[in-house]
Design a protein around this nucleic acid. Structure first.
Length: 415
RNA sequence: GCCGGGAUGGGGUAGCCUGGUUAUCCUGUGGGACUGUGGAUCCCUAGACCCGCGUUCAAAUCGCGGUCUCGGCCCCA
């Protein structure tokens, strides 16, 4: 028997019903917020990702040479692809450009709970707008989607890279020199961060101030003690989100994301029930296009880990109602089979979901099957019904039956 | 890349330590009891020891290697 490749999954009919349900929900919510969907190739030139994340990422992605000798990889994320697409073809669209995507990504990593080699991301980007309103709108979509899924136990933590950058700049460490320090702080490696700051000539007081700031978490009021434009900026983002009706938000200045292209606001969402791999969403404002050869354009985006979000939803026992089918058509005798196919054809043409016995089973077995596929009604067609050009409509939940004229059936079932 | 659990019909499991006839039970699949009425009950049927090598008269059971999986570390764009 051939096994699935490591870290991949098959999805059966039941699971796909659940997945499509939430996928559609996310798409609808994005459209509701004025975002429009894009799709990009599942494989890209490896260079796209080494430009964004450094040469080291090659170790963690599915990278290979194709038959023409090109360096190709399966995409490990979608932001880079969307920005590539934007630079090459979408720069003349009216701004702000609000895009979303849903698709699978691949990473060559050790699988564990909530981590697969093939996984699905939903994400959105707002391109060409550098305002707090933009950041609020991005966080707002992420928050609205999570709210809509029915998930309850999660935390949205908002931070700002500028706050630490300003502190470091005031202490004489600016630009690229700050990057390694931010990376250490992001990983909570405080001794290493302190050493780097001391090396850069920062005083004890300044160092302690920076460390203390990364540990600032809680409601918006924790920003009261933070000076500078970045703090004011986050307050503004927060006020806008509150105006839109989102309250499940907290500030966490320890969200740093030590990557060069993040320019300001950054945020993360995690679902504590998930264990080690509990982050379900991450994003922020960034400037990537110039890395890929375009002009500098400010953007804000985020990505939701679709699989982890579903795991969190399941862990909380959020209910999902299986769609089932409206009608199951049951021919009683062999002579009624043609009639059954006429009826099922008529129903389907009218937009009523309908199925029909194709195993030549008896009425008892067919009703049993109708019940097992969660059919709302059984439509029974036999000699009696043939004579009066009608069918017997049986409500599968109550067991009530009535004789219905065939031409009235679609109308009855659409109610 | 590292550490530790695990893999038995479609799903869930017993058996493994202490090797020995036809591999347990539940559920699900197909058929029947019930040739015009489901969810209950009963009967029948089909269906499994992850792969390879080794030890042994004999391996689901013991040993080695591999694959996959679960939990954690590293990483997490």
């Amino acid at each position: 028997m051939i096994q699935r490749p490591r870290g991949t999954r098959d999805f059966g009919p039941e699971e796909m019903e659940v997945r499509r349900h939430f996928e559609d929900m996310m798409r609808k919510e994005a459209a509701l917020h004025g975002f429009r969907e894009v799709a990009t190739p599942i494989f890209e030139h490896t260079e796209l990702f080494t430009l964004k994340s450094g040469p080291g990422v090659v170790e963690e992605i599915y990278a290979f040479q194709d038959k023409g000798g090109r360096e190709i990889c399966l995409r490990p994320e979608l932001t880079a692809s969307v920005m590539r697409f934007f630079i090459s073809d979408l720069t003349n669209l009216p701004r702000p450009l609000k895009l979303f995507y849903f698709g699978q990504c691949f990473r060559y990593e050790r699988p564990q709970a909530g981590r697969y080699r093939e996984f699905f991301q939903f994400g959105a980007e707002i391109i060409g707008s550098p305002t707090p309103e933009t950041d609020a709108e991005a966080i707002g979509l992420a928050a609205a989607i999570l709210e809509r899924t029915g998930l309850r136990d999660y935390r949205i933590r908002i931070g700002h890279i500028g706050i630490l950058r300003e502190m470091l700049a005031r202490a004489g460490v600016s630009g690229d020199a700050a990057l390694p320090i931010l990376q250490r702080l992001d990983k909570k490696e405080y001794p290493e961060a302190e050493a780097l700051m001391a090396q850069a000539g920062m005083g004890r007081e300044a160092i302690d101030g920076v460390i203390a700031t990364t540990q600032v978490t809680g409601p918006i009021t924790v920003l009261d003690g933070v000076q500078g434009p970045a703090g004011a900026y986050i307050r503004e983002v927060y006020d806008i989100l509150q105006a839109m009706g989102f309250s499940n938000l907290s500030v966490d200045l320890g969200v740093v994301r030590g990557l060069a292209y993040y320019t300001g606001m950054v945020f993360e969402v995690d679902a504590p029930k998930l264990g080690a791999e509990k982050q379900i969403c991450g994003g922020g404002s960034y400037s990537l296009s110039e890395l890929f050869g375009g002009e500098k354009v400010f953007s804000t985006g985020f990505a939701i880990g679709f699989d982890r979000t579903l795991l969190a939803i399941q862990a909380e026992g959020v209910e999902f109602v299986r769609p089932g089918i409206t009608a199951y058509v049951v021919p009683v005798t062999d002579s009624a089979r043609m009639r059954a196919f006429q009826v099922v054809g008529m129903l389907r043409r009218a937009g009523v979901s309908a199925d029909v016995d194709i195993m030549r089973r008896g009425v008892g077995k067919s009703l049993r099957y109708a019940s097992s596929i969660n059919a709302k009604y059984a439509v029974i067609v036999g000699e009696k019904e043939l004579e009066s050009d009608s069918v017997t409509l049986r409500d599968m939940a109550s067991g009530e039956q009535s004789l219905v004229r065939a031409e009235e059936l679609p109308k009855r079932l659409k109610e």
